[in-house]
Design a protein around this nucleic acid. Structure first.
Length: 106
DNA sequence: CTCGTGACGGTAT
DNA sequence: TATACCGCCACGA
């Protein structure tokens, strides 16, 4: 299992996240057999180029928040993309994971 | 090879 | 329940 495959698998998993749903970094890490590799998932997304097909914006952290400082363009973009899919943010820039988190089907 | 860094998360407090 | 620590692990200097 080399790193290239790891990244590819991370992207494949992300493609599986349904419209209007989200997944956490840790959840994806577990799906690619890296129980403690949440940071690697973040790194994999960090490498993505700008016009990528990967729905990276559907990946958020465990707190139900976007993993970018709230006042950055990247954060506002991600938030806009999610809101366009029906995801609602509360006054704390947080979403209800219980409601939007993608339930893996194995 | 060692060291610091980061789109994170689990656990202790 | 909300924070604070600190462990993870691949990358790049």
């Amino acid at each position: 299992m080399n790193k290239q495959n790891i990244y590819s698998r991370i992207y494949e998993i992300i493609y599986l996240i349904p419209h209007g749903k989200v997944a956490t970094y840790g959840q994806i890490a577990r799906l690619v057999s890296l129980p403690n590799g949440a940071r690697q998932v973040g790194y994999a997304l960090h490498k993505l180029k700008e016009g990528t097909d990967v729905p990276w914006f559907r990946v958020i952290n465990r707190k139900g928040q976007i993993s970018f400082p709230p006042d950055t363009t990247a954060a506002s973009l991600q938030r806009s993309l999610l809101e366009s899919e029906g995801v609602i943010f509360d006054t704390n820039n947080t979403i209800d994971l219980k409601k939007y988190q993608w339930k893996r089907f194995k």
